[in-house]
Simulated assay, not measured.
Amino acid sequence: MAAKTKAQGIINEHPVAVFSKSWCPYCKASKALLSELGVKPYIIELDQVEDGAAIQDALEEITHQRSVPNIFIDHKHIGGNSELQAKRSQLPQLLKDAHAI
């Protein structure tokens, strides 16, 4: 329950949140794209925090997605890297609406 509260808190408090793993190439691609667009997302590396596995379980409950990256823009679930890349043309407006850029 604490992990779900923590995950939801991160989603609620940050215009852009990326739940990631430091070694994941898809996570790196998502973080690179957001960086290119001038965004400084809140990033939590689930493999580097003590409760990372519990947070990943909580995210699966919240989003029905277990894989990383698990990306939220303007408190809405975007999906993973494939979904983020597919929204490339919409991202500037989404990020502007979220006050992330």
Rank of each mutant, 00 (worst) to 15 (best):
42 Y>E: 14
96 K>T: 13
55 I>S: 04
68 V>H: 12
83 E>T: 07
21 K>S: 10
53 A>V: 14
44 I>P: 02
66 R>C: 09
18 V>N: 09
48 Q>R: 14
15 P>Q: 04
37 L>G: 11
100 A>H: 07
95 L>F: 01
85 Q>S: 05
55 I>W: 05
85 Q>G: 02
27 C>E: 01
77 H>K: 11
93 Q>N: 13
65 Q>D: 04
55 I>N: 03
2 A>N: 15
27 C>Q: 03
32 A>P: 01
94 L>C: 05
21 K>N: 08
86 A>D: 10
81 N>W: 07
71 I>N: 01
91 L>H: 00
52 G>K: 04
62 I>K: 04
76 K>Y: 09
98 A>L: 08
37 L>S: 09
25 P>L: 05
39 V>W: 11
67 S>I: 06
99 H>L: 01
9 G>N: 13
42 Y>S: 13
31 K>H: 01
28 K>L: 15
84 L>K: 02
56 Q>W: 06
3 A>N: 07
11 I>N: 08
63 T>M: 07
86 A>H: 08
78 I>C: 03
22 S>K: 01
63 T>Q: 03
97 D>R: 00
74 D>S: 13
16 V>F: 12
60 E>C: 15
98 A>W: 05
24 C>A: 11
82 S>H: 14
38 G>M: 06
16 V>L: 09
94 L>S: 01
29 A>Y: 00
11 I>G: 09
12 N>E: 15
21 K>W: 06
20 S>I: 03
40 K>R: 12
17 A>G: 10
2 A>T: 15
70 N>C: 14
79 G>Q: 01
26 Y>N: 11
